[in-house]
Design a protein around this nucleic acid. Structure first.
Length: 248
DNA sequence: GCATTAAGTATAA
DNA sequence: TTATACTTAATGC
């Protein structure tokens, strides 16, 4: 198996494909190195492709009329984004930029549609990915409308744990390390508030023992149980933590 | 060093 | 909560 096939097999979306099928797919998936900060797709670049992240991280965001950015999602290795016909994994008006130096594969819309017709399991998996993204956006939307900044931050931290939760502290496994270095500014663009509010709210959560930092520019640690309690008032809490539990 | 970036604080609206 | 502004600390040339 050549290296790229190995990579394709690690993309969650392609889990249901056999080695042979991956080998067939390989020629249709050009691979590209993109430097941090590079725009991968935007409303102007009409790219009808599905992008697969081999390594690195990609930020999906929207721009408001007055130029403010709203980060919709931060995707890592194994995640997919892009547009495929009437299915869009992202919505319109979405920008995608490399948030770190990344390695990105892409597959043509037509080719992917063919593949979905042949492989129902792949199509189902694709739908699952799309609907999960939808659910996450809906949950955040609910908090944008009716929740406080605090609730949005708590929710966001939970979701980041789910996606980027790394090491557990050896002597205290309820602490999870967030393996992404997000500045307060970056968190703010994911929650729709300003940097200063994130700073303050984070202090509040630190005082309550929900999060902690070992030092400046060090990763953030999140206390699962306390985070769960902080999120408790929400209807989707249980579903959310079931997802978190499944990770380990 | 000096400029830049991230984070902490304070105050008015 | 946000906008604005000022301060401090760390980082990079």
């Amino acid at each position: 198996m050549i290296e790229k096939e190995k990579f394709l097999s690690r993309i969650n979306l392609f889990q249901s494909l056999s080695e042979d099928e991956l080998a067939q797919l390989e020629p249709a998936t050009p691979m590209e190195v993109v430097k941090k900060g590079t725009m991968i797709s935007s409303p102007h670049l009409e790219q009808k492709r599905l992008f697969l992240i081999k390594a690195g991280k990609v930020r999906l965001y929207k721009l408001s009329a007055d130029g403010k950015e709203l980060t919709i999602d931060l995707l890592g290795t194994g995640h997919v984004f892009g547009e495929v016909g009437s299915f869009t994994i992202s919505s319109t008006n979405m920008y995608a930029e490399a948030w770190e130096d990344s390695l990105i594969c892409s597959i043509d819309k037509g080719k992917f549609e063919e593949l979905m017709l042949e492989k129902p399991r792949l199509a189902l998996h694709f739908i699952e990915i799309v609907s999960n993204r939808l659910r996450e956006v809906e949950e955040m939307m609910e908090l944008m409308a009716y929740g406080s900044v605090r609730q949005r931050l708590v929710y966001l931290l939970g979701r980041l744990c789910e996606k980027y939760g790394g090491e557990r502290q050896a002597d205290a496994p309820e602490w999870i390390e967030l393996a992404v270095n997000l500045t307060h500014q970056e968190l703010a663009t994911m929650m729709g508030c300003i940097r200063e509010t994130v700073t303050e709210t984070l202090h509040e959560l630190t005082a309550e023992g929900i999060v902690k930092k070992t030092g400046l520019r060090k990763p953030l640690w999140v206390h699962r149980e306390r985070l769960r309690e902080a999120l408790a008032p929400h209807s989707f809490t249980n579903v959310f933590f079931t997802r978190l539990d499944k990770r380990k």
